[in-house]
Design a protein around this nucleic acid. Structure first.
Length: 415
DNA sequence: TCTGGGGTCCTAGGACCC
DNA sequence: TCTGGGGTCCTAGGACCC
């Protein structure tokens, strides 16, 4: 049996841990640039604030009902995630951390799954302040469904689906649009064929499923029937691509500021590569004007002879590519860097033109930068091309302190 | 004024080869 | 008269997830 443990309203719950006065009150967390709503407390959901909705559309609700607004604070959420995951992993034989706020757990050998889930939920809540929902079922896809039941239809946020009868009963009440792996396109298509609930899907033949939903769809439906097709992946996997991109508060109309932003994202990508002990063989830069209006997009791919994770090298390729594709007739609103074709650093093949001495020197330099930035904060040590007074920074009006990771942000007790 | 950011997997179709 | 058959690799784009 597999459990899916999922933190309730995760970002909103993190913000509340150090602000208990917000319990029972509507809280929302906004995406980067304070663009749209990406997390809501139950009270905010009850006010009709929609997930992914642009913040300005709900502005009047925020004011009328005194909704507490936060900008995303990924340092804080990442730290809470680590705490929750380490508690979960110390209580089960196997775990797959699926995202920042959820994990699949292998419950093999655990006799009373309901009691176990209740105790685990209690422990995480007591130790971290984060409430969980736990759904237990024979496969991953079914545990996702059980989790949804746990969140919405159970008093204690626990749902165990063990027997065929109860699984089928729930499948009949479960809309296909809520199935993990079925998005709005497939929902539209299947609805037009008269399929509305998960049970109807399990009754179709394998051939029909594969024709309509391809191989991933067939795996998904088998999982719905209780036949495990998706394994728990407990191993750390090297990322296949790494992206750093942002939308700005205000458009940029000059190549100097654009270059500062782009090279900053290039150095963040390089640092992320080094953190994984990876090197990338291709770099992709992209520029876009305001996406809400018809505009302009351009991109450039740079293929390297030798994979790298050296910030200076990646920065210089990006700067050159920017000069090639920059068009001074446009005002840019978004830029980004994607590094891909990733290989382990230990397996990098040098060419005859690479100077190993230089590479080693630069590796030491990068290491020193990483150590300092780890200690004093990302981008504290930066490159001159990154600039210092970023006029191009995104909006973050409602940022909370990093209570758990920055000494100056620690809570103080009045004596 | 105003719509995020970071990923993965799959497929169709083109290029190329023998 | 009239244009094979089978394979691989790569890439762009779609769909989906949180």
């Amino acid at each position: 049996m597999i459990a899916l443990a999922d933190c309730n309203n995760f970002y909103a719950s993190c913000e509340r841990v150090f602000r208990p006065s917000l319990n029972g009150k509507p809280v929302v967390v906004l995406s980067n640039n304070d663009g749209c709503v990406i997390a809501r407390s139950n009270e905010a959901k009850a006010l009709g604030i929609k997930m992914g909705e642009p913040a300005f559309k709900s502005r009047y609700i925020f004011e009328k009902y005194d909704v507490h607004i936060f900008s995303t604070n990924f340092v804080l959420y990442g730290d809470f995630s680590n705490r929750v995951m380490s508690i979960l992993s110390s209580n089960v034989p196997e775990i797959e951390v699926y995202s920042i706020d959820e994990a699949f757990l292998n419950l093999e050998g655990i006799p009373n799954k309901k009691q176990f889930s209740l105790e685990l939920r209690e422990k995480v809540l007591k130790w971290t302040g984060i409430p969980l929902s736990i759904g237990v079922a024979p496969t991953k896809v079914l545990s996702k469904m059980a989790n949804s039941m746990a969140k919405n239809k159970s008093e204690n946020n626990i749902c165990i689906l063990e027997h065929v009868d109860s699984i089928n009963r729930h499948l009949k009440e479960f809309s296909i649009s809520n199935i993990w792996g079925i998005g709005w396109q497939l929902t539209k298509k299947l609805n037009s064929m008269g399929i509305y609930n998960a049970y109807q899907l399990t009754e179709k033949s394998d051939l029909w499923i594969q024709k309509q939903m391809a191989i991933t769809g067939l795996r998904l439906v088998k999982e719905l029937r209780g036949e495990p097709c998706l394994e728990l992946e407990d191993k750390w996997r090297r990322k296949k691509s790494i992206t750093t991109s942002r939308t700005f508060a205000h458009g940029i109309d000059n190549i100097r500021d654009l270059s500062k932003a782009l090279t900053t994202y290039a150095s963040i990508c390089a640092a992320k590569l080094r953190k994984e002990n990876s090197c990338a063989k291709s770099i992709y830069i992209m520029l876009a004007t305001d996406t809400s209006r018809p505009g302009h997009k351009s991109c450039k791919i740079i293929n390297l002879n030798t994979p790298t994770n050296d910030s200076l090298e990646i920065i210089s390729h990006c700067t050159e590519a920017l000069r090639n594709i920059y068009n001074s007739n446009y005002i840019y609103k978004r830029v980004g860097v994607i590094v891909s074709d990733i290989v382990p650093q230990s397996k990098v093949q040098l060419t005859v033109f690479d100077k190993t001495d230089d590479i080693e020197k630069r590796q030491h330099l990068m290491q020193a930068i990483d150590i300092m930035n780890h200690k004093y904060g990302r981008l504290r040590v930066r490159f001159a091309v990154n600039g210092y007074s970023p006029r191009w920074h995104p909006h973050q009006e409602h940022l909370s302190p990093c209570y758990t990771t920055r000494i100056s942000d620690l809570m103080r007790i009045k004596g």
